[in-house]
C-alpha cells in the first residue's frame, strides 16, 4: 500500500516539475558554419567557400570547400551561422555588435610572405582596432592554406584587444592570446 501511494505521489510530483529555464535550447553560442565571400573589387560574381559542420560538434566532422580565385583584388567578408536552427541563425550580427571583444584572424601559408594572398583588415571597432569581418585581399598565382579564426577576447573592461594583438597572434600563435576560439576553419586556396 505504501508503495503504490508512494509511486502515485511521485508521479504527481514529477509531473509538476518545470524546466530549469535559461531558454529552450540556448544555442546562441553554437556556430556550425563559416562562410567566406570574395567579391571582386572591379565587380562581378562573388566567390564563396564554406566550412560547414552540419551536426554541430562531434559525430560527423565538418568539411571545408576549396577556395579557387583568379588573380586580382577582392573584398573578403566573413560570416558565421548556426544552421542547426531553422531558419539558420545569423551569428555575424552578434559578432559585429560586440566587435571590441571579437577578432577574426587570418593565418596559414596562404597569407605568408610567399603565399598567394595579401590580406589587410578593412574594418575597425569603436577603438580603431581591426575586427576582420571585412578585409581587402590581393590574390596572385600560388597555393596555400588559409586558416580563419574567430577569437572571442576576454570580457575585460577596457577590452584586451590592442594594436599589437594581430601581430602577436601571428608571431606566437593564436593560442597565446587571451579569450577563446569560437570558430576556426582551414581552407585550401588556389590561384592559377
Amino acid at each position: 500500500m505504501t508503495l503504490s501511494k508512494t509511486s502515485m505521489l511521485a508521479t504527481l510530483m514529477l509531473a509538476a516539475c518545470g524546466s530549469p529555464g535559461g531558454g529552450a535550447s540556448n544555442d546562441e553560442e553554437v556556430i556550425t558554419t563559416l562562410v567566406l565571400s570574395f567579391a571582386p573589387t572591379g565587380g562581378g560574381v562573388s566567390i564563396t567557400a564554406e566550412f560547414d559542420d552540419p551536426d554541430g560538434e562531434g559525430g560527423q566532422a565538418g568539411t571545408a570547400q576549396p577556395i579557387n580565385l583568379a588573380a586580382g583584388s577582392y573584398t573578403l567578408t566573413v560570416g558565421f551561422q548556426n544552421r542547426l536552427e531553422a531558419p539558420p541563425e545569423e551569428i555575424t550580427d552578434e559578432v559585429r555588435d560586440e566587435q571590441e571583444f571579437h577578432l577574426v584572424l587570418f593565418t596559414g601559408t596562404a597569407v605568408a610572405a610567399a603565399g598567394p594572398l595579401t590580406h589587410s583588415y578593412g574594418d575597425q571597432d569603436a577603438n580603431g582596432l581591426p575586427v576582420g569581418l571585412t578585409s581587402s585581399v590581393m590574390a596572385r598565382a600560388g597555393t596555400g592554406q588559409l586558416t580563419v579564426t574567430l577569437r572571442h577576447m576576454p570580457p575585460e573592461e577596457p577590452p584586451v584587444k590592442a594594436a599589437d594583438t594581430v601581430m602577436l597572434a601571428k608571431q606566437n600563435g593564436i593560442e597565446t592570446l587571451g579569450g577563446s576560439t569560437d570558430a576556426t576553419a582551414t581552407f585550401l586556396v588556389t590561384v592559377p
Partner: peptide
C-alpha cells in the same frame, strides 16, 4: 559561460 550578448544570453548549462 563567456558568450556574446551576455546580458540576455542567460546560462549555457541549466540543470534541475
Amino acid at each position: 559561460d563567456v558568450v556574446r550578448n551576455a546580458d540576455e544570453a542567460g546560462a549555457q548549462y541549466n540543470f534541475r
